[in-house]
Structure formats: C-alpha cells, structure tokens
C-alpha cells in the first residue's frame, strides 16, 4: 500500500460521513432553491427563479406586473444583520477589556481566568438562554430587585423584545470574542507598551496606538466568530424574542413548516450562507497581512 493510498483510506470514513451529511445536503438545498414549491411542502422538479426572486421582491397581489420590494423579508434581513452587528459590538466592548485583563495576569493565573470564561461557553445553549430568561423575565431577577428597591412599580417588559435577543446572543457568544482576542494579546510584548509610554504616549494613546493595532487579528477573528452564529441564530430569537421578532433563521424554518415553500426556504438558507461567506472573506482579507507579519516576527 502506498502512502497516498493509506492516507485516503484513513480519510475515507470522515469524507464519507461529511459528504453525505454535511456537504451533500447543502448541494440539495442549492438545487431546491431553483425549483417550484410542491403543494403540500416539498418541491416539483421544474426550474424556477421565483424563490430567489421573492427573497427580496414581491408581486402586487392584484397586478403581478407590479414588482415591489418584499418589505417583510427586508425587515427581517435587516433585523438579523443589525442584531448580529450589535451583538458583535457588545461582545467587543465587554470582551476587549476582559481579554486584556486575562492576558496581563501573571502566567500562573491566566489559565484559571480563561477557564472561567470557557465554562459558560461549554454550558448547554438552552441552559444559558434559560438563565437569561430567568434574569430578565417580568418576575425575574432584575425586575424583582428593582421593584423591591422601589425603583419601579411595574415590571419592565424585557423578555420577548429585540433587546432580550441582543442580551441573550451577547451572553452566549461572548467567549467566542474573548478567546481569539486573548490569543492575540498574549503575544503582545509588554515592553512595547513601556516603549510607547516612554515615547510620550499617555495611557489612552498607548492603548490606541499599540494595544489596539496589535490586538487587531484577534479582534477581527473574534468579530467573525461572533457574527456568524449571531446572524444564523435560531434558538435565541425563538426563546427570547417575541412572535414578531423574527430573525432570518426563524424565517427559514417558517418556509419548511407552515409556509410550505421549500424553494424559498432553500433560497433564504443560501442567502444566509452567502452572508456568512461574506463575513469570512472580510476576515481573510483583514487577517492575511497580519499572519504574514507574525510569521516573520
């Protein structure tokens, strides 16, 4: 047996499983997005661009010649992108100082702090989402405390709003921001900071001119790692958002359920995938020069 044959033999099980259960179904979805919907779900084997058309556009109910933007879809697309970006932003604001804090601990205690960040991450998604529910529901921790303190008389409605979705996603995805940031910051030589201060930089300028640019690869990686699951979120908006606070993931589910429009669901899935790919491309373009530079250093 040659080395190449042995290699492919070792790879065969993984390739077979992934081809059948990961890559294959995606191709099926791509094909379905170009077919006509079946009457009770499913598809009819006839080529059609209707599904892709209705991702962004709609025809007037009375006069099919009139084409207008699909307001409902656009609103959901916008909410998904906007919530994913807001989640990323919140994660940056909280994750950056956290990662820096960990990276500047003495070597021995760093692993412990990192461990503390990872524990919630590996905790079941539903457990964490449920925990957020417990905190923000009308009779939850925050409202109970505020009412007992006499700050408010009536509970503030937080659960089942966009705000709840944002809080939930930021909570769930925060470790994805902290870990790559930490990895980048850990490489930063402390003497560079001292050099900046020695060269007349205030603490703030030291942060802006040295810490921030040197953490950039981690910042970009973290942002992509948060943005991708956030834009495709399905559980969090389902549990924390209200019935009208749909995100793209929920819209996709709808097409395969009550909507009974599989081609549209497939087209929306491909749209979501395209958004993810755009984020990945942004990441690759942003990180490439840095990785090259780091390899030399």
């Amino acid at each position: 047996m040659t080395a190449a044959q042995r290699r492919w033999l070792l790879l065969a099980p993984a390739v077979a499983i992934l081809a059948c259960v990961a890559a294959g179904p995606l191709l099926v979805m791509l094909v379905y997005s170009f077919l006509e919907p079946g009457e009770f779900g499913g598809v009819r084997p006839a080529f059609s661009l209707d599904a892709w058309f209705s991702v962004l556009f709609a025809r007037d109910m009375f006069d099919p010649e009139i084409v207008e933007p699909n307001i409902a879809h656009l609103a959901i697309l916008w909410r998904s992108v906007s919530l994913a970006l807001q989640t990323t932003l919140v994660c940056i604001v909280l994750g950056f100082p956290t990662a820096w804090f960990i990276a500047t601990r003495p070597r021995g205690t760093r692993e412990l702090w990192l461990f503390l960040v990872t524990i919630p991450f590996w905790t079941n998604l539903l457990v964490r989402t449920f925990a957020i529910q417990e905190v923000i529901r009308n009779r939850g921790l925050v409202n109970t405390l505020l009412m007992q303190a006499g700050v408010i008389d009536e509970p503030i409605q937080m659960l089942y709003t966009d705000f709840a979705v944002l809080v939930g996603m930021a909570y769930v995805f925060l470790p994805l921001m902290v870990l790559p940031l930490y990895a980048a910051m850990e490489r930063v030589d402390r003497r560079l900071l001292e050099a900046a201060r020695d060269l007349y930089a205030s603490r703030w300028r030291m942060f802006r001119e040295v810490v921030l640019p040197l953490s950039r690869p981690g910042l970009v990686a973290g942002s992509v790692l948060v943005f991708i699951p956030a834009i495709g979120a399905w559980v969090t908006p389902r549990l924390l958002g209200g019935g009208r606070n749909l995100m793209l993931g929920n819209l996709i589910e709808l097409q395969f359920g009550q909507g009974r429009n599989w081609p549209l669901g497939a087209a929306l899935s491909m749209t979501l995938l395209a958004l993810v790919l755009v984020a990945l491309l942004v990441y690759l373009r942003a990180v490439d020069p840095d990785t090259r530079r780091r390899d030399h250093g």
């Binding site: 790879l11 993984a14 390739v15 992934l18 081809a19 259960v21 990961a22 890559a23 294959g24 179904p25 995606l26 099926v28 979805m29 379905y32 991708i228 699951p229 834009i231 495709g232 399905w234 993931g249 996709i252 589910e253 395969f256 599989w262 669901g265 497939a266 899935s269 979501l272 995938l273 993810v276 990945l280």
Partner: peptide, 24 residues
C-alpha cells in the same frame, strides 16, 4: 478541500444544516 470539508459544520449556520438534513 479536506480541511474545508472537515470544518464545514463549524462555518455553516446550524439552521441551514438543520433544514438541509431534514429535507434529505
């Protein structure tokens, strides 16, 4: 390509994988 295939489940949103598997 092998790496892309192995890492695909990490990159594709779960909801997309979910509905795709349901269909197949």
């Amino acid at each position: 390509m092998i790496h892309a295939l192995i890492n695909q489940p990490l990159m594709v949103p779960e909801i997309v994988t979910g509905v795709a598997l349901m269909v197949v």
